[in-house]
């Protein structure tokens, strides 16, 4: 299995290091053609305005939307979650519109509000460590969107079919739980697995 990591800007190397630990092959994605042969795609943290610029100007937006339409698994963290949302506020901004949710950018405020917290998730019994860095807040989730983890009463990790979005950064922790969950979504024939991981 090969996982592509969008590498136009952001913490793509942290995701690559995490997947390397899990023994998975990764490749950096900067052009649409590089997506060929990938079973999954990670949209890393970073600045969504910068990333969006590259997606829109280089045909990556359409390529990623097509990738999702043919069943490719996508995992967005922080800025990546913003890109996946159908609606972005604070301020309003364009996106890939793949996961039915409304996301508020910089929902907790500026960098001084960034923090490491623990929260409950459906993925394991122990609390999940969540690193928030100028993180967004998921304000609303649509009908087909399942909340896998919450922090302070707001969804922090959500799933919609083979699409996964986190407002925090599992790639900046030593805990591989969320990435392992994503790899299961990316594995061939994974649709039957959905929901079976609940504790």
């Amino acid at each position: 299995m090969k996982i592509g990591i969008l590498a136009v800007q952001g913490d793509f190397e942290a995701h690559a290091a995490m997947l390397e630990r899990l023994g998975v092959e990764t490749t950096e994605i900067r052009t649409p053609a590089q997506l060929d042969g990938c079973e999954g795609l990670i949209l890393p943290g970073g600045e969504s305005t910068t990333q969006l610029q590259f997606l829109q100007e280089e045909g990556l937006s359409e390529a990623i939307q097509k990738f999702a339409a043919r069943g490719g698994a996508i995992f967005g963290t922080c800025a990546g979650a913003i890109l996946l949302a159908t609606e972005v506020q604070n301020p309003q901004q364009d996106s890939l519109k793949l996961v039915d949710m409304t996301v508020l950018r910089n929902g907790y405020g500026r960098q001084v509000a960034s923090d490491v917290v623990r929260g409950h998730s459906n993925l394991k019994r122990e609390p999940l460590e969540m690193v928030f860095i100028r993180g967004p807040i998921i304000q609303r989730t649509g009908p087909g969107v399942e909340v896998l983890a919450e922090f302070a009463g707001k969804p922090a990790l959500v799933q919609c079919g083979q699409l996964l979005a986190a407002t925090f950064h599992p790639e900046l922790t030593d805990d591989t739980t969320v990435h392992e969950h994503f790899l299961q979504l990316a594995a061939p024939g994974s649709n039957q697995l959905l929901g079976s991981l609940k504790a």
């Binding site: 590498a7 913490d11 793509f12 922080c78 960034s114 490491v116 860095i133």
Partner: peptide, 17 residues
């Protein structure tokens, strides 16, 4: 500390930019 991790974390987010 948590504080150190989010400080370096923001620097990580700026990579490639």
């Amino acid at each position: 500390s948590s504080e150190w991790r989010v400080k370096v974390g923001l620097a990580e987010m700026l990579k490639g930019g």
